[in-house]
Design a binder for these strands. Structure first.
Lengths: 210, 210
DNA sequence: GTCTATACTCTGATAGAC
DNA sequence: GTCTATCAGAGTATAGAC
């Protein structure tokens, strides 16, 4: 559910999109049933095909909406004039808050991206790609500056960004396996993640500026 | 494809299992077709139901085999008497080598684990759970020892293990999104990952022993 | 725009011969 | 154990009334 929760009652098309979002994210595209989406939206199944020609089209529409709500905000923050430390704090904090509320979202994005490569093409428009490049350039400047001040070798900006993303996002992706491996109940896992939100930024900063 | 490639020609049941492995991993359980698995195995579709009662049972068998090939080796290595640095090196190296060869494997595990929670129950037997606990304890000892020598606060062993896993595994999980975000062609992504395999261990060690 | 009814396809599963 | 043939159910999509 990555719907912009506006004030006015949503029209049918939006209600279908909201419903499809929820069902697709929960069951996966292949596992989702048009009937279940119709039920969730409180409309007839045929109406889904009226507004969105096919299941694949509906899936594309949902995917596009998720991408639009996910990517630009983070790109903007990471390209801003915030300090490196603040960026790390905000990145970790933003994703922890967000993904805690939507635990199915990331596994959904991962699995559909792996299985339906065409969906990924819509993730980055040329402008967004340009913004991503700019973000990395900005990050590189900051990392180099810090490294120079500390007289240590700088790490690659791309590598650092993926390390940041990976260490932050992986628990949301692999939650069931982690719970099993570490023997964490639901409550304990939540405690683990809360602690992680507080401690991970310090760990990453330390690697960057020893 | 996590088949133990033995010498003798595999019997039919194993051939089916190998085929199912490949198809399930590529298409997901819901997206996989019994017919395609049968074709891949070079046998009749009915034979699948003779050896494995249903599609769900076949999926469980495949899942179990993947888990058995994935988990114990890493647990054993991480619980060994290798130094902390060597463990980081080996963890990163082992997964990079392995997942480069089987790029679909991890997204498959992630998505099926999220969608079919019962599958995860089979991942860790009581003995394996015990081994995992022992591994974490051993890791904690080593981290504490290093921290004490350097007069810094130790990080949580659980947190470190997940950070190690996340920063190492995430690129294999989110490859399509990363390629899009950083504008990497297939060749460039491979270069990126090769560089990562070399540089990530140093980054992690630095955070642990600044 | 929204519904009812239905066509048609796909696919998991079984029966039964060899 | 392996195959051929077939069924039953599920699920996407469409036709057509309102």
């Amino acid at each position: 559910m990555v719907k912009p929760s506006g004030q006015t009652a949503p029209d049918t098309k939006t209600r279908i999109l909201d419903a499809a979002d929820e069902i697709f994210v929960r069951r996966g595209i292949d596992g989702a049933r048009m009937q279940e989406i119709a039920d969730q939206a409180g409309v007839n199944k045929a109406l889904l095909h009226y507004h969105f020609r096919s299941k694949a089209d509906l899936a594309r529409a949902v995917w596009h909406r998720i991408a639009s709500s996910f990517v630009p905000g983070i790109l903007h923050m990471m390209a801003s004039d915030l300090s490196l430390d603040e960026k790390i704090d905000q990145f970790v904090d933003a994703y922890h808050r967000r993904l805690t509320r939507h635990p199915y979202l990331l596994p959904y994005v991962i699995s559909e991206a792996a299985r339906h490569p065409d969906l990924v093409d819509n993730l980055y428009s040329p402008e967004r790609r340009q913004a991503a490049r700019h973000m990395i350039d900005k990050l590189r400047e900051q990392i180099d500056a810090v490294a120079k001040a500390r007289r240590i070798a700088p790490v690659s900006a791309e590598q650092f960004f993926i390390t940041l993303a990976g260490s932050c996002l992986y628990p949301f992706v692999a939650r069931p396996m982690i719970s099993e491996a570490l023997g964490l109940s639901t409550t304990k896992f939540e405690g683990f993640m809360e602690r992680r939100r507080r401690e991970l930024p310090a760990f990453l900063k330390r690697a960057l500026q020893p």
